[in-house]
Each structure stands twice: as structure tokens, then as C-alpha cells.
Amino acid sequence: MSTFDIPEIVKQLRQVRDQWREKQNRTDTEYREFPSRDAIARAVESFKGVLFPLRLGPPELRHATEDFYVGHTLDSALQTLLAQARIELHYRQRGSAVGVQEVDAQATNAVHQFAHSLPQLRQLLDTDVLAAFQGDPAARSVDEVVLSYPGVLALIHHRIAHTLYRLELPLLARIVSELAHSQTGIDIHPGAQIASGCFIDHGTGVVIGETAQIGSNVRIYQAVTLGAKRFPKDEQGHLQKGWARHPIVQDDVVIYAGATILGRVTIGQGAVIGGNVWITDDVPSGTHVSQARLQKDADATGSSTVSEARVAA
């Protein structure tokens, strides 16, 4: 007899799973129901090597074999991605009248579009790499930035995840983004729209919500939150989903460490948001917002507002 009474524990766990599946109306268990996090992680590592072969590819790789490596690795990674895309789409279509062949065709089309987006994705990432190199006086080379900066790693994952998100593979996209989150402490929802030349410096604790929009050449420091201000519910008391609830950050904005910006507010072009401030109103273009100024306004009026923030000369 087992010391730990394994058969009885297995039986009870089966009963709990069956109860859950019955409540969730999940009775068809013939196929794997969910994508594999491990398979997606392997595919993402391969895509990173495809995008930056000599820096994020295998150590033995040389220029002479670069194209062979990219082609072979890309084919394998896309096949893995296709298998996981099929699983996600079958999962989402369970109980519907959509046939297996139609779902497979949708998966194939999505992965085909993803594959052809990779050259443009690499060009976009190059702008992020240059932004990090040019924006950090401690950076000695663009290679150092690619190899070691957590903000760049998070953006590589985000660019991949956002592409999958736009191709209506949100579960795969979320897994890709959470892989970076676990490695860097930078939490970017795959739905967030981030234009070229983004630099996330240091990065730990950065949170960027699903409907956030970030313009070109924006610099964000650690512990910045671009979040939602409120969470309205429907008549059944469930959180409403899909509505625009996160900030819009226009071009050339700098957001320093610890700043919290909540709601569908707009941070105007060229604004500078100081450290540890709390923003819930629009900030005009060119405005400098600092904690000291906000505290002075709060002491005088009983409430703080960015409308009275100091404007740059």
C-alpha cells in the first residue's frame, strides 16, 4: 500500500476536476484544451534568435551560416506556433458550429501573417534598441542593449505578443507577454499600442494596460503605471471588458520613476512627468509635472490637479 494513499488522492482530484468541467460545460476532453506555455516559450526563444541571430541566437553561429539558421529555426518555430494557434482557436470555438477545417484555416492564415510581419517587427525593434542606447549614458554599445537590457527584452516580447493579439490569438499573446513579465518585472498587456523608439529604462515594476497608447520616442522609468482609474460593472455585477480605460501618451514624453497615470487621460506631446506623481487629468503638451508643485497646489486648495502644473519654459 502506498505510504501517501496516492490512489485515493488521484480519485479525489479526478472528482474535483470533473465537477469543475461540468460547471464550465466542458465535457469534450478528446483533444488538448489549452496551449502549452512551454511550447510557446520555446517558440519565442526561437523567434528572438531569428530576429537577432548573432546576438540572441546560438553561440556557435557565424555570418556564413546565419541565413541557414534563420530559415531552419523559423520553420520549426512557425510550426510550433501553428500547433498552439490551432489549440487556442479550437478552445475558443468549442460548442460553436465552426468546423475543424475552418478553425485550422484560420490558424494557418494567422501564422502566415505573423511570419510575414517579422521583417517589419525587426525594423521597429531596431528603433527601440537605438532609443535605449542613445537614452542611457551608461550604455556602451547597441549590442550591450540587446543582450542585457530588461526593457529591450520586454519590448521584444511585446512586439511579438501585440502582433499575435492583432491576429486574434489573445491567449498566445498573453502567455508571450507574461513570459517577459516573469523575467523582467515589466508588465505590458499585449493589447497596448506602442509606437517606435520606446525606451523603458531599468523597468522593474512598470505596468502598461491593455488599451494604453504610447507614441514615438517615449521614455519610461521603473515603477511607472499606465492603468485604469475605475472598473464599471454591467447589470449582473460583472466587470465590463473591452472599453478604452488606459492613458494616451503622445510623442516625446518622459515619465519618471514611480509615476502613476490612471484613466483615459492624454499626456501631451513633449510633457515631462516627474517621479511619484499621481495623474488623473489630461496634461497639456510641453508641461512639466513635478511632485513638489502638485503638493504645493494640494496644500493651497485641498486637492491636486495637473492643470496648474509648471509649464516648461
Results as ranks from 00 to 15, higher is better:
Leu130Met: 15
Ala154Gln: 00
Gly274Phe: 08
Ala110Cys: 07
Thr127Cys: 01
Thr305Asn: 08
Arg293Pro: 10
Arg230Val: 12
Leu78Gly: 09
Pro284Arg: 03
His181Leu: 01
Leu169Met: 03
Ser177Phe: 06
Glu210Cys: 05
Ala139Leu: 04
Leu89Cys: 07
Thr29Gly: 14
Gln183Gly: 13
His238Ser: 11
Gln113Leu: 09
Ile273Pro: 05
Ile273Gln: 04
Gly71Ala: 06
Ser141Val: 09
Lys48Glu: 13
Gly286Asp: 04
His112Arg: 14
Phe114Arg: 06
Asp299Thr: 13
Pro58Cys: 09
Asp75Gln: 11
Val16Asn: 14
His63Ala: 12
Lys23Thr: 14
Ala77Asn: 02
His157Pro: 01
Ile248Lys: 10
Ala97Thr: 11
Trp20Ala: 13
Arg264Tyr: 07
Leu124Phe: 07
Arg219His: 12
Leu54Pro: 08
Gly274Thr: 09
Thr27Asn: 12
Gln84His: 04
Asp187Met: 04
Asn109Ala: 15
Leu61Met: 08
Ser2His: 14
Ser307Asn: 11
Gly203Val: 00
Val249Ser: 05
Pro232Gly: 09
Pro137Glu: 07
Arg42Cys: 15
Cys198Lys: 00
Leu167Trp: 01
Val206Asn: 03
Tyr256His: 06
Ser196Gln: 15
Ile156Lys: 01
Gly258Pro: 04
Arg17Tyr: 12
Val218Phe: 01
Asp143Ile: 14
Gly49Lys: 07
Ala292Lys: 13
Asn25Val: 08
Val176Arg: 00
Val176Trp: 00
Ile186Arg: 01
Ser46Val: 09
Ala39Lys: 11
Tyr149Leu: 05
Asp126Trp: 10
Asp5Cys: 08
Leu171Val: 13
Ser182Val: 05
Gly197Gln: 03
Gly274Gln: 04
Arg92Asn: 12
Tyr91Trp: 15
Arg37Asp: 11
Glu88Ala: 09
Trp20Tyr: 15
Val265Asn: 05
Gly95Met: 00
Gln12Lys: 15
Arg219Phe: 10
Gly237Ala: 05
Thr305Tyr: 06
Leu169Ile: 05
Ile208Glu: 00
Lys233Pro: 04
Arg37Asn: 14
Arg230His: 13
Gly151Val: 08
Thr80His: 07
Leu164Lys: 03
Val44Ser: 02
His238Phe: 10
Asp299Gly: 15
Tyr221Gln: 02
Pro232Phe: 08
Ile188Cys: 04
Ala107Cys: 05
Ala138Met: 06
Gly197Asp: 03
Phe4Trp: 10
Gln291Arg: 07
Val224Pro: 01
Ile273Cys: 08
Ile248Val: 12
Arg140Tyr: 14
Pro150Ala: 08
Leu294Thr: 09
Ala292Phe: 12
Pro232Ser: 12
Cys198Asp: 02
Gln291Phe: 10
His238Thr: 12
Gln24Asn: 14
Leu171Ile: 08
Tyr91Thr: 05
